[in-house]
């Protein structure tokens, strides 16, 4: 009997979804736009996080050594650097190599350097980090460790840039989270009101069902199924629109923004984020429906 009723209720939900397809389509569009805004913020935040990581990973750290350090000590320091799991490779840059790099990079200063009595550039060990996500905290800890080794006099690392990028990413994430919470709440109210309008349009039907002896559960289930389907369809549509935006957006803004394009690019959502959006959509639709239909069950 329960299966028969369930079958009837699912059929009824399908019937209603089709019968009120115009109204339902509008609901799906509203839901999808709400979730699209959340999705865009996630995609922007993803991009900044990615850029931050890339920047940290591509940076080389230069450990400047005392001049005339015995080869054995240089090797010990090199080994200590290589022992770190963060480091991919280490290159020794001698004083004369450093000088020739400088003159190559700044040919206009060539003569000034030539006038010096001695080579002012210290030898260094250049460590390149592995190409995977490394946090700034881990890099800082690694640098502090190497800095303390005897023979190491200074460290050059574009920490500022990484810090700026990381804090920008954190700000975007915080804004994204803050707006996300507001948008989710707003979406919930929009969706529950859209569903409420649907329910209100059918209050006559609910009343009739109550008066012929339907239980509240019997009345509620088709509405919950409809809310679930609308929420699910809305969030799936938002992911699809986001996918199109990610494909089309760079084409339009690439020309005008130049370097800023990288900052404003949208990076596709992770599978986990997509699952959250879909679950969020389905849940919002179902809960919106549940809260709306309950108001009409007191006949």
């Amino acid at each position: 009997m329960i299966f028969r009723q369930l079958k009837y209720l699912l059929q009824s939900a399908g019937h209603n979804l089709w019968n009120f397809r115009g109204r339902n389509l509008i609901s799906v569009l509203i839901i999808s736009f709400s979730f699209l805004v959340i999705g865009i913020f996630l995609a922007l935040s993803n991009n900044l996080t990615y850029l931050g990581e890339q920047l940290s990973n591509n940076l080389a750290i230069s450990f400047f050594l005392k001049q005339n350090l015995p080869a054995k000590e240089v090797e010990e320091i090199r080994q200590a650097i290589l022992d770190s799991t963060l480091v991919d490779n280490v290159v020794y840059v001698s004083q004369s190599e450093a000088l020739s790099r400088f003159t190559a990079n700044f040919p206009e200063l060539k003569e000034i350097v030539a006038n010096l009595d001695s080579n002012p550039f210290p030898p260094s060990l250049e460590a390149r980090l592995k190409d995977k996500s490394v946090t700034l905290a881990a890099i800082t800890a690694f640098i502090d460790h190497i800095k303390r080794l005897p023979g190491v006099v200074d460290v050059q690392f574009n920490q500022d840039w990484v810090e700026k990028m990381e804090s920008l990413s954190r700000i975007v994430q915080a804004i994204g989270f803050f707006l996300g919470v507001i948008l989710i709440l707003a979406s919930f109210f929009i969706i529950s009101n859209v569903v409420r309008l649907n329910v209100f349009a059918r209050k006559n039907e609910i009343e009739i069902q109550r008066l012929v002896g339907a239980t509240n559960t019997f009345i509620r289930i088709p509405f919950l199924v409809e809310g679930f389907v609308l929420g699910l369809a809305g969030s799936l549509l938002s992911i699809f629109i986001l996918f199109l935006l990610i494909k089309i957006f760079p084409v339009y803004i690439g020309q005008t923004l130049g370097a800023a394009e990288q900052l404003l690019a949208l990076r596709p959502l992770s599978l986990e984020q997509m699952i959250w959006l879909v679950v969020g959509g389905a849940l919002t639709g179902t809960l919106g429906s549940a809260s709306s239909v309950s108001k009409f069950l007191r006949v």
Partner: peptide, 29 residues
Amino acid sequence: IVFQDFRLMFHQSVFANVAISLQITGLPD
């Protein structure tokens, strides 16, 4: 109950309107 204003579901067929009293009890189709 026969209501003075009938209280019919206008977007559903006559069959569905009558059958609702039985659907709620889970009788076989």
